[in-house]
Simulated assay, not measured.
Amino acid sequence: MAPSALCVRCSLLVLRKGYRAPSSSTWHKYGNAPVRGASTSVFNVFDRGMKRRQKNWAASQANAQQYEYLREEIGDRVADRVFDVARTFPFALDIGSGRGYISRHLTKETVERFVQADVCEEALKRSSASEIPTINVIADEEFLPFKDNTFDLVVSSLSLHWVNDLPRAFQEIYRVLKNDGVFIGAMFGGETLYELRCSLQLAEIEREGGFSPHVSPFTAVNDIGNLMGRAGFNMLTVDTDEIQVHYPGMFELMKDLQGMGESNCAWNRRCLLHRDSMLAAAAIYQEMYGAEDGSMPATFQIYCMIGWKPHESQAKPAKRGSATMSFGELGKVNEMLSKSKKDDA
């Protein structure tokens, strides 16, 4: 079934009872104004309205597919983790789906029905066809317009690093999951683009006597597990991986980031970078990080996370003090096994 683009105002059966979609003015201003239900203590780091415009512009370009290599790769890896779970999911949700980078790798034997949610309507309009019956919904990661206990599986790939209120996003994911449901996601980590960040900072210090942030901040890996645990997830797994992509130069890297819709959208970003500083940064990048073949590597750190919503059927840790062997006796295990083999012989 071909995906159909729907707005959050549609009366889907899965929509939360009593939910009201934000008006158009609220939708475009939620980056710089209080959002319905948002905590006043949340750091408003990113201009979410700007990010939405960046993603819509990138998705509407005629050559948009040539910049999707990272999203394709990570979407494939997330799908592999879904296949690792030996069950069929009747109903699944993809948060920040873009053009369907996860669903295109899944089968209807694994996921029976699928909902793709993203703030970028242009990407949803151009979503790839899938053999899984799919519905597209325009929705914000921090305010999912679905009823409690709706989905058996929630996935996300390279979207959550632009969320201002990450604790709330995890709480929303936890809320819409059914008991014994699983969340499998991937997001950019703190060491992403450290080469570009260092080169720009050194160039600005040299040419202008100070520097401004040009690469958006990322979450630390230890914070991911803490936030998911606070949201209620158990049986947590968080691991990191790195992908290194080689570019002809720094400007080609920046062009690709723009084509991905991954340009910086932090409120404190500096919109203007002087020509001298840019040329100096490119030279520093080449000198400090350039490969022998003349290319410039860019590192993308990926956090991969898995968390389960608790259920009575899940395995539980043994009670404290119930162990029958101390850690000091573990060295005797090999002796016991060797003796058992000799007896059997």
Rank of each mutant, 00 (worst) to 15 (best):
Q61G: 02
M278G: 08
A169V: 10
A92T: 03
G249C: 09
A5H: 10
K319Q: 13
S322A: 15
E287D: 14
D343C: 07
Y67Q: 05
A86K: 10
E73P: 00
S199H: 08
E122Y: 06
N56Q: 09
G331A: 10
T240C: 11
E312C: 09
G328C: 01
G225V: 01
A282C: 04
C10S: 15
S263N: 05
E191P: 03
V182C: 08
L227A: 11
G181W: 05
R275K: 14
K255D: 12
S263Q: 04
F143D: 15
Y194I: 07
R48M: 12
S199C: 06
P317C: 06
L196E: 09
V35M: 08
L144N: 13
H28C: 09
E262M: 01
G190N: 14
P34L: 06
R104I: 03
D118A: 02
A315D: 12
T324A: 10
E73H: 14
A231C: 07
G232D: 05
I184N: 10
K341R: 15
I243R: 15
F89S: 06
W162R: 14
I132D: 03
A282H: 07
L106P: 03
L166P: 06
F188L: 15
I205N: 13
P317S: 12
Q301K: 11
V45K: 11
M260H: 03
T219K: 07
A203W: 07
P22F: 07
M228K: 02
E142Q: 15
L160C: 07
E242D: 13
T40A: 15
C198P: 00
L13E: 12
W162P: 08
V45P: 01
H161K: 09
V176T: 11
G331I: 06
I132C: 02
A5I: 12
T240L: 12
G37A: 04
I95N: 04
L193W: 05
M305Q: 05
A5F: 14
E131T: 11
V119W: 02
Q301R: 15
G328V: 01
Y289V: 01
Y174M: 06
S159W: 05
G37R: 03
I284Q: 06
T240I: 14
E312H: 11
G261V: 00
S60T: 10
F114E: 06
A291C: 08
A62E: 15
G181Q: 05
E287R: 14
E329Q: 14
S277F: 03
G98R: 05
K309E: 05
P310N: 09
M187T: 09
Y303H: 11
G225F: 00
P217Q: 07
V163M: 04
S340C: 12
